[in-house]
């Protein structure tokens, strides 16, 4: 066991998998000599050479398009998009190509590949370095969407994502890249995709979150406990495929649900969680489902702390659910 940050866990996973499987290549803007703008690929070019860790021209469409080609050929591309906010030029390649290749070719061609991207607010990045746009990808059949919230999960889920036979959008909560540390098993310890993590057991209300909202929920739950409210926290870890069984089990136990996400509220992935609960667990619900989310605005710079759900807003949501 080593104590690592989320960011160090990314590097550890990439290094571990590149050592284990010589088909794995890592590339993107500034990932080579510079080790990426966040240093997630630090030392990889030095260890594995320029053929396995390389810089690309500044074109997300080119990065993902070539990644699709590499995957078709049978190597294992791990492409970095510098910020999730810059992924849109690659949207066509992700949505029309990577996601649909297996289906549209009847399995003749497949795209096992990972697109890594730091995402989310909290680093004073303004409109274009803060977005949390996971819902676009969750809305596209053929993609898997994975978001870790701890160093151990970051490593374990990234290992599984690289080994997966389908394209994976791997979103890294950059706000907790360096602020969250934790024990990470050394060597090869993959965490399976499609399984949620029970962060905290509780009886009165389930907080459902992913990425950087998980520690926010933990803080809110501690504050709620001081007020005598017992919260359960579920970290979804994989949005697609969703661990619906874990979701339903928890809410059937607590009877209340607060969904916390930093994306704009409308049509965010929390809306889907709410719909599933309404469809399949309405008979156990003691209160309306509460969504604590970002606002339906672009992401603000100076006032980002007011935009992002924090423990105070989550606590208000908890009290609304419990006090109904």
């Amino acid at each position: 066991m080593a104590e690592l940050t989320v960011l160090q866990a990314v590097t550890d996973a990439l290094r571990t998998e590149m050592r284990r499987d010589d088909r794995v290549v890592v590339f993107g803007e500034d990932v080579g000599k510079n080790g990426g703008v966040f240093r997630a690929t630090e030392g990889l070019q030095k260890e594995f050479g320029e053929e396995r860790c390389f810089d690309t021209p500044l074109s997300e469409c080119g990065i993902v398009g070539t990644a699709v080609g590499m995957a078709l050929y049978g190597i294992r591309p791990v492409a970095e998009i510098q910020f999730l906010d810059f992924i849109y030029p690659a949207f066509d390649q992700i949505v029309s190509e990577a996601a649909k290749m297996r289906y549209r070719s009847g399995g003749e061609f497949t795209c096992p590949m990972v697109i890594r991207a730091p995402y989310g607010g909290g680093i004073r990045g303004g409109l274009y370095h803060s977005q949390s746009s996971e819902a676009y990808f969750c809305h596209t059949p053929g993609l898997k969407v994975v978001i870790p919230s701890t160093p151990a999960d970051t490593k374990g889920l990234l290992l599984s994502s690289i080994r997966d036979e389908d394209p994976v959008i791997f979103l890294e909560p950059k706000r907790i890249y360096r602020t969250v540390k934790g024990e990470v098993p050394e060597g090869d310890h993959p965490v399976p995709l499609g399984k949620a993590r029970l962060v905290r057991e509780g009886s009165q209300v389930t907080l459902i979150a992913w990425g950087a909202m998980v520690p926010v929920c933990e803080k809110a739950a501690a504050e709620a406990a001081a007020k005598g409210i017992d919260c359960e926290i579920l970290d979804l870890r994989t949005l697609v495929p969703l661990d619906e069984a874990a979701l339903l089990e928890s809410v059937r136990k607590t009877g209340r649900a607060v969904v916390v996400y930093e994306a704009p509220k409308t049509a965010g992935f929390g809306a889907e969680i709410s719909a599933i609960l309404a469809e399949k667990a309405i008979e156990v619900l003691e209160a309306p489902i509460v969504r604590v989310a970002g606002f339906d605005t672009p992401f603000p710079y100076t006032l980002e702390n007011l935009y992002l759900p924090d423990a105070r807003r989550v606590l208000a949501g908890i009290e609304k659910a419990v006090g109904f």
Binding site: G65, T66, G69, M70, A71, L72, Y73
Partner: peptide, 11 residues
Amino acid sequence: LTQAVGVAHAA
């Protein structure tokens, strides 16, 4: 067109 470059690079 970009995919073709990816295959070529991988090969």
